[in-house]
Amino acid sequence: MGRTKLYPVGSGRLEKIAPALRRAFDVVEPGRDPVPRSLRAVPGLGQAGTLVEYLGPIVSAPAVDGEKPVVLVDSVGLFPLLVGILCEQRDVPFVVRLRGGMWKEFRDRAHTESHLRRHSHNLHKEFVRNRVLSLADRILPVSPFLRAQVAYELEVDLERVRVVHNPLETDRFDATPEGRFKRAIGLDDEKFISAITSFNYRRKYEGIVHFVPAIQRVLEAHSDWHFVIAGAGTAYEEGRERIRERFDEPVRDRVVFTGFYTPIEELLVDADIALHLSFRDAGPMAVLEAQAARTPIVVNTGGGMAGLLDRSVRGTAVVENDDELYHSLNEFVEEPERRRAVGERNRRHIEREFAPETVAAEFRHAIDDMLS
């Protein structure tokens, strides 16, 4: 079998997995190949530039003799639907990479809208999503949890659904000097627990809201520790106030909101403990990034976070309730050597399971099996 020619189209997020893709395939970058003349003007359709970016490479793909073209998208909106339809018509293998959760995700994102608009938005988006996935020759969720969601939500042959993880290069964490984030937010030498969330999705930041009592107990017991929350989104003001109001006044001044912060490496390298509390996330990069930064991390069971950890490692903390979270955090706070040891094991786990060459092999196996 010759080397497969892969056309990743449509989303800038595909750039993040480009190192893994290039290890496995001959990758054709969007916009690099000549655009067919027939697509330079599409009457009656707006956003023609975006349409060309999606459809141009696909029309060109089968024209090269002896190659095995495959089209890859990583979103499930209207343009991927057009891509899928065209691939079906031209008998081009169509692969969809799934990064996000499958349970009422559009309704959750639109929670600030009216009930009628939210319901309409949800039905429209889910119809398009399901149609895109029905056209896919392969569906590649980024976590086992997300694969289970696909099985639950859709009538689909699970042989078409293969887990291909998010790749992560660790060099950028090694190159990040310590102390920059603390200086930026004025913490100096104080210790802190970090949490990264999105305020675009209610069920993401509600994970933090739910577990505030446990974090409150830790801050009360350790007056030199802070809780730092990074993240932004359309419901930032609402979410921030809901979280703040749940903390009692004596510790509230040690709860810090940074809003959107970049580079995220600076935050995670400086963090003493990372938290990821969510009822929405299927395979969040923040969990991988915390481990790459050698930071011990505690997650809850309300999503796919636990599947990104090495559960065989003693000290891996996956919690269901406030008491479990309090005890896990408190042990890390009181045992700095344990924090360091778990952090090192986390890093080795990322290097072993999520390195670009490892994920490239997952991609290659999933695609080669489809083409065989």
Rank of each mutant, 00 (worst) to 15 (best):
G2A: 13
K5V: 14
L6E: 10
G12H: 11
G12M: 07
G12A: 06
E15A: 11
E15P: 05
E15R: 10
K16G: 15
I17Q: 09
R23D: 06
A24W: 00
G31P: 04
D33N: 06
P34V: 04
V35S: 02
P36M: 02
L39Y: 10
V42C: 09
L45I: 14
L45D: 13
Q47S: 14
V52M: 10
L55F: 15
S60F: 10
A63S: 14
V64G: 05
K68A: 11
P69C: 14
V71G: 06
V73T: 12
F79H: 15
F79P: 03
P80H: 01
P80I: 03
L82G: 14
V83A: 14
G84N: 13
I85G: 09
L86V: 15
P93I: 04
V95R: 04
R97D: 07
W103Y: 14
E105G: 00
F106A: 03
A110G: 04
H111N: 08
H115G: 13
H115Y: 09
R117A: 15
R118G: 13
S120N: 08
H121K: 11
N122E: 15
K125A: 15
E126G: 00
L133D: 00
L135G: 13
A136W: 08
V150R: 03
Y152F: 07
Y152Q: 08
E153Q: 08
L154C: 05
E155Q: 15
E155T: 13
V156N: 14
V156P: 07
L168I: 15
D171P: 04
R172Y: 05
T176G: 05
K182I: 07
K182N: 01
L187I: 05
L187H: 10
D188W: 03
E190Y: 04
E190A: 15
K191C: 06
S194D: 10
A195T: 06
T197L: 07
F199W: 02
Y201V: 02
R203C: 00
H210M: 12
L219P: 00
S223V: 12
S223R: 15
S223N: 03
H226K: 11
H226A: 06
F227G: 09
V228C: 04
I229N: 03
T234F: 12
Y236A: 14
R246V: 04
D248L: 11
V255K: 01
V256I: 15
I264A: 12
E266C: 04
L268F: 02
V269T: 09
V269M: 08
A271S: 10
I273R: 06
A274P: 01
A274F: 03
S278W: 08
F279V: 00
G283W: 09
P284W: 01
P284F: 03
A286I: 04
A286N: 14
V287S: 01
E289H: 09
Q291P: 08
R294M: 13
V298M: 08
V298K: 07
V299R: 03
N300Y: 12
L308M: 12
D310R: 11
D310M: 11
D310Q: 07
V313D: 14
V319D: 02
D322V: 08
L325R: 01
E331I: 03
E331M: 07
V333S: 12
E335A: 13
E337V: 10
R340P: 04
R347I: 02
R347K: 02
E353L: 05
T358L: 09
T358M: 14
T358N: 10
V359A: 06
E362N: 04
F363P: 01
H365A: 10
L371K: 06
